[in-house]
């Protein structure tokens, strides 16, 4: 795989720079892992067989992406921790995923709104990362952006169908938007760590993603006949380790096997 990748140019990246990417790569890893786990909770419970499979597919895409990030994070950290140590042996306060992705599945409309908010950011972020200065991050993004493009198509379709569907589906979509929209802002609000990396050019400035994200959301919501929420308060915290109570319960399930049988392999 590495043979086909462009070499990072010495001019673009100082030799010492990639190590500083560790917290950012870990944040990407945690985000994809936690959302993958949430989606996997639907397995066997989807509203129809076809959508049950669709959500399991997306969960597996995100899990694969998370693995790539964890492996790279372990390499960057260079402290002897493996991808499994990072995924399974950290406590909730050490996780760096935004609050959005740990929110419970709720009904199908909640899952769709959560997914749409994430996909709209994730896809546009990956499009920048794949052309970014760090070769490894660019390679992971190059692979994942195709998957994310489909995820965004899927969740956008469902926002439209639920919004412009039946009275019941519209009621549920409205409720999900009212509950979850405040968690969208954290995705594009940089932490101090992210600001530092954005200043070096290693991480894209999220402000540059906003016009495309906004345009896509406007298009989808217009088709869904749903007013697009504006100027919503942004609930922050997850990216700096201040999580909702939901994450602890999620991790107790996710980490159970490694905590109970340390070093277990299969």
């Amino acid at each position: 795989m590495s043979a086909t990748l462009p070499e990072p140019t010495a001019a673009a990246v100082p030799a010492s720079a990639p190590r500083s990417l560790f917290p950012f790569v870990l944040q990407l890893a945690d985000t994809s892992l936690i959302l993958a786990h949430r989606l996997s909770e639907w397995c066997g419970h989807g509203p129809v067989l076809e959508q049950d499979l669709a959500m399991a597919n997306i969960a597996l895409d995100l899990l694969g992406e998370a693995r790539s990030y964890y492996q790279y994070a372990a390499e960057l950290e260079d402290q002897g921790r493996t991808e499994d140590d990072l995924a399974y042996l950290r406590s909730a306060v050490e996780y760096r995923n935004p609050l959005l992705v740990e929110q419970p599945n709720g009904d199908f409309a909640h899952t769709i709104v959560r997914q749409f908010l994430f996909d709209n950011f994730h896809y546009h972020l990956l499009r920048e990362l794949k052309d970014g200065p760090d070769a490894q991050l660019a390679a992971i993004a190059e692979k994942s952006v195709k998957e994310a493009a489909y995820h965004l198509k899927w969740s956008s379709e469902w926002v439209i169908r639920l919004g412009d569907g039946t009275e019941e589906s519209r009621k549920r979509l409205d409720k999900a938007i009212a509950t979850l929209w405040r968690f969208g802002g954290e995705l594009t609000t940089p932490t101090e760590t992210e600001k530092g990396l954005q200043a070096t050019g290693l991480v894209p400035d999220y402000a540059t993603l906003l016009p495309a994200m906004q345009a896509h959301a406007e298009h989808v919501f217009a088709e869904a006949t749903v007013p697009l929420p504006t100027a919503v308060f942004a609930q922050l915290g997850g990216k700096t380790g201040r999580h909702s109570e939901h994450l602890g319960y999620l991790l107790s399930e996710l980490q159970y096997m490694q905590r109970t049988y340390p070093g277990l392999k299969w």
Binding site: L49, E50, L53, W154, E157
Partner: peptide
């Protein structure tokens, strides 16, 4: 539209 997407998810994995 949904049929094509569902087919992608069910039959081209």
């Amino acid at each position: 539209t949904m049929a094509v997407q569902n087919a992608r998810d069910v039959y081209t994995r």
